[in-house]
Simulated scan of single mutants.
Amino acid sequence: MEPHLVSYTRRELIAYFLRLGTVGFGGPPALVSAMHRDLVMERQWVSEEDYREGLALAQLAPGPLAAQLAIYIGYIHYGVAGATFTGLAFVLPSFAMVLGVSWAYVEFNGLPWMQAIFYGIGAAVIGIIAIGTHKLALKTVSKDALSWILFTVSALATVIAEQEILWLVLLSGGIYWLVKTRGPIRSDSGSSYAPLLLQLFALPSDSILWQLALFFMKAGAFVFGSGLAIVPFLYGGVVKEYGWLSEQQFLDAVAVAMITPGPVVITVAFIGYLVAGFSGACVAAIATFLPCYLFTVLPAPYFKRWGKHPGVKAIVDGITIAAVGAIGGAVIVLGRRQLVDLPAFLIALTSLGLLYRYKKLSELYLIGGAALVGLLLRYIA
């Protein structure tokens, strides 16, 4: 579709993702749900089919789920330029915030107030994610029994394994295709850039910045699942293998990612800052997001070309159903970790109830109120 036939301008799309990157809390489940609610259901800038294709591609490729979906949405009507600008608009606000928090962390020897704020925000986010996942499931999961079986299996598997299971997502696509259609699927092979990445990984590590670049490029290129999936990989590298951070510093890095809006994987900037200052933060962020950008933009033309084929569409639908199921399971996993006592449970329940009752209520107000409640409970109660 040509840009002049589109109901929105590239500037409007960039402005939307700039705002989402600035106020979008809750990690991949909440951000993916927000894009569907805002761009598909309310503004109708993106079709349901295009959204599903983007979610399926983001699910199949390594890297942060929400960032890849944002990049694909930018590509739909405005090509590589749209993908580039929407990706930057989505990531830069949280990157700037993380830089600010990193500076304060170093200057003031830690952030004792961080856990108090995270306590309140984390609880509210569970309610936000839950209501978003409910709406997304009702919209994307068909009414037939097979769809709900695949959704339920994916959700339960995510709860049990406490992580997204890629092979199960792919299997869901195959099962849905087998049941819905048996037509052949044609495919074109795109240019491969894996050898280039492998050559980069083999370069000599002459400086700490090179070490950071190569490590975080591996993280962006080979870790599948949502932004939360990268945390175990980062822990093994920055704490165990390289010893760049202590255990407490790494936990603080994860907390920083959770209390700032935008993609959770932006925690890499905090880690890079602690290791090598501003340069380290920039190198870590660029190295992590570059593979995810390439893994989205390079296959995008083929997804758009063949996405309407009945066989491909059936696979995409099956993958999307499993992906939404995994998001639903992630709500339970995150809830078990975050809702550790009665006040946290009540904050989450209140957030869910308010969002269900008041459809237009801004999540930003809930986040701000929850942060204040967290501070009050920690320092006054």
Rank of each mutant, 00 (worst) to 15 (best):
Y119G: 03
W167I: 12
A281G: 13
L377K: 07
Y242W: 13
R11L: 14
Y242V: 06
E53T: 12
G120M: 08
L203M: 12
V98K: 05
A56H: 07
I367H: 04
V268Y: 05
T296C: 08
S172C: 15
V283N: 07
Y75R: 08
A229Q: 00
P299G: 06
F345G: 13
V297A: 10
K135F: 07
G225N: 03
E164L: 14
Y16R: 06
Y358V: 14
G280Y: 09
V316Q: 02
A137H: 07
S154Y: 01
L55D: 01
V264K: 04
G120D: 07
G277I: 11
V80A: 12
L364G: 10
T84H: 01
L60I: 11
Y273M: 08
A124D: 05
D317K: 14
A15E: 11
P3T: 09
A300F: 01
D144L: 01
L290T: 14
T181Y: 02
F345Q: 12
S205K: 13
G328N: 06
R182A: 08
A370G: 09
A330M: 12
D252W: 00
V373Q: 03
Y235A: 03
I160N: 01
I259D: 01
I126E: 04
S102Q: 04
T320S: 14
L18G: 15
I230F: 11
G74A: 08
P64C: 02
A269V: 08
W306S: 06
S154D: 04
E42M: 03
A371I: 09
L234R: 02
L196F: 13
G54F: 01
A67L: 11
A116N: 12
K143S: 14
V106F: 00
A276Y: 11
G243S: 08
G311P: 06
Y273W: 09
L138P: 00
H36M: 10
A194N: 10
Y365M: 06
L92M: 14
V23N: 05
C282L: 15
Y242R: 12
S351H: 06
L376P: 05
P204Y: 02
P112L: 05
G21Q: 09
L212K: 02
L200W: 11
V373F: 12
S154I: 00
G100M: 06
A34R: 15
I71F: 06
I76P: 02
G173V: 09
V373G: 02
Q115L: 11
D50E: 15
G374N: 09
L138W: 00
K308R: 14
A123M: 08
L13S: 03
A83T: 07
